[in-house]
């Protein structure tokens, strides 16, 4: 053997997401720290960006005056009721499209026609149909959640391994058993990733609905602060929305870990 042997260089690394604990938090902390530092020292004028500690003081005020719950509770309720209505209808229609050719032929073009409509544009219509109260807000959120849920659901049903369905039929399983025990769990991964999109849309529409006719709610609070150019309160409201978004995403992550543990 020749004696000019070198180690073979390693070139197979990367392209594999790994779990890094705490990095997400670190990014938050660094950004917030930078924000406080730059506004406190005056590098960024308080007219441009409020001090983080002032925003925090706004929260203290909101908490002590009880206004926090006055705004957050109605918002959470609208979010929950509207999303639940939209998800229920969306999953039902999505399954119908996935399972029945007739429903597919009839409803897919309709869903395609509804999908690109900016749902906010329909709010005045919903106010006329369902009233200025909670009804129109529920309807707007439900409608916004409905279309992406339908698309995610029937996509998920379409992607269920046909071999498993064939297996179910070959063992004489009833139609209902095949749907419940094979199609539903098989479509679940797609359903849950669709849920992420649907609920993000629900938060956006929640704020839109509350800006156009609500006394209380996070959207109303932000709109009021914005029209007074009260940046501390504006940021306080925006942070509530971010927190809601993070909480929803975390919740779906937990659901995925629990329900989809069978995936490798």
């Amino acid at each position: 053997m020749a004696d000019d042997l070198n180690a073979v260089p390693f070139r197979g690394g990367g392209f594999r997401p790994e779990r890094r604990r705490g990095v997400g938090w670190l990014v938050f902390v660094v950004l917030l720290g930078l924000w406080e530092l730059l506004t406190a020292t005056g590098v960024i004028s308080n007219l441009t960006l409020p001090r983080l500690s002032d925003v925090a003081m706004t929260y203290v005020y909101l908490w002590e005056s009880g206004l926090l719950f006055k705004h957050v509770i109605p918002s959470l309720q609208r979010f929950a009721v509207g999303s639940l209505m939209g998800l229920t209808a969306g999953v039902a229609v999505g399954f119908a499209i996935g399972l029945f050719s007739l429903a597919r032929a009839g409803l897919v073009p309709l869903v395609a026609a509804l999908f690109p409509i900016p749902k906010i544009a329909l709010l005045p219509l919903f106010v006329i149909w369902f009233g200025i109260d909670e009804g129109s807000k529920y309807a707007l959120i439900a409608f916004g959640v409905f279309t992406p849920t339908v698309v995610a659901t029937y996509g998920g049903v379409d992607n269920v391994d046909r071999g498993l369905i064939r297996m179910g039929q070959s063992f004489g399983l009833s139609w209902m058993s095949i749907v419940r025990k094979i199609v539903l769990p098989g479509a679940l991964p797609a359903l849950l990733s669709g849920l992420r999109v649907s609920l993000a849309i629900a938060i956006i529409l929640l704020v839109a609905a509350e800006m156009l006719g609500a006394q209380h709610g996070i959207g109303a609070y932000i709109l009021e602060a914005g029209s007074l150019y009260d940046l501390e309160r504006l940021f306080a409201g925006v942070i509530m929305l971010s927190a809601l978004g993070v909480a929803v995403s975390w919740g779906i992550g937990q659901l995925e870990r629990r329900l989809l543990a069978w995936r490798s």
Binding site: G163, L164, R166, M167, K181, I182, P185, W262, R263
Partner: peptide, 8 residues
Amino acid sequence: FQDFALLP
């Protein structure tokens, strides 16, 4: 079946 067809 060739591909086993087990529910994962």
